[in-house]
Simulated assay, not measured.
Amino acid sequence: MKYALLLLFFALLSGCQTTSPEPGITGQGEFTASDPEYGYVPHKPVKLGGFLRGSKYEGSHIEYFQSLTGPNGEPVKVKRLGSCCPFEDKTMPFGGGMLDKYELRYRGQKKPVTIYVNLYQFEAPQAPQGFTLL
């Protein structure tokens, strides 16, 4: 009986080692949104979650911006422009939140672009058109 329990314990232990970490933004390949408005308009923000400490996706916005590149793999410079655009969400403690605006630029780009980011809600992120995720 002891050997059966010991064997079961090691089987469970080795099974846990094969799980992947979450949320895992990197490793998704060059995943660009098919919607041309994704990220570029307030009503279709990039939902990165992770703003609230202790949340499941804490820090995912940092991973996202580190993984974002220009269309040919150019490094992207990110500048936070501030908060804007209140939104309602009854599931949140205060009934909603604010979006953040970020300026994205890379070498060879004609002019920088602004994207809208929701740091309260999370959906598997994509790159706005004109960018890629590595």
Rank of each mutant, 00 (worst) to 15 (best):
G39F: 03
G54W: 00
S60P: 03
S20W: 12
V46W: 03
T69E: 12
S67K: 10
V41K: 08
P75Y: 02
T69W: 05
Q17N: 11
S20V: 15
G24H: 12
V76M: 03
F51R: 14
F9L: 13
G15D: 05
Q66I: 05
P21V: 09
H43G: 05
L6D: 10
S67V: 04
V76Y: 01
A11F: 12
F10I: 15
G29L: 10
R53W: 07
E37T: 13
Q66T: 09
S67N: 11
L52M: 08
Y57R: 01
L13P: 00
P45R: 03
T19M: 13
L68S: 07
Q28S: 15
P42H: 01
E30N: 14
P23I: 05
S60F: 01
T18S: 15
P75C: 00
K47F: 05
L6C: 08
G50A: 02
T18Y: 14
L12S: 08
F51H: 13
L12D: 04
G70Q: 06
K47N: 09
P42A: 09
P45K: 06
Y38M: 05
S20M: 10
E58W: 03
G70I: 05
E37F: 13
T69P: 00
F9Y: 07
P75L: 08
A11K: 06
E37M: 12
Q66P: 00
T18W: 13
I62N: 11
I25A: 00
G39T: 04
T69I: 08
C16V: 12
V41I: 10
K47D: 07
F65T: 02
P21E: 12
C16E: 09
P45D: 01
G59S: 01
L12K: 05
G73T: 06
K44E: 08
G39R: 04
T69M: 11
E63N: 11
V46Q: 03
G49N: 04
P71T: 03
L6G: 10
G59L: 03
Q17V: 13
H61W: 08
T18H: 14
L5T: 10
Y38W: 02
P71R: 04
S60L: 02
E63P: 00
A33N: 09
F9C: 11
G59W: 01
I25D: 01
L13K: 04
L12V: 10
Y40H: 07
T19I: 13
S60M: 01
L13M: 11
E58F: 09
G59Q: 02
G54A: 01
G27H: 06
S34A: 14
L7Y: 08
F9S: 11
A4Q: 09
F10D: 10
D35A: 09
P21K: 11
F10Y: 13
I25Q: 03
S60G: 01
F31I: 15
T26M: 13
D35S: 10
Y40N: 06
K44T: 09
L12N: 07
K47W: 02
G27E: 07
L7Q: 10
E63V: 04
C16G: 15
P36W: 03
L8H: 06
T26W: 14
E63D: 14
K44N: 14
H43Q: 12
G39L: 02
S60R: 04
T69S: 13
Y64T: 05
G27C: 07
G27S: 07
L12A: 07
L7K: 09
Q17S: 15
Q28K: 15
S34L: 13
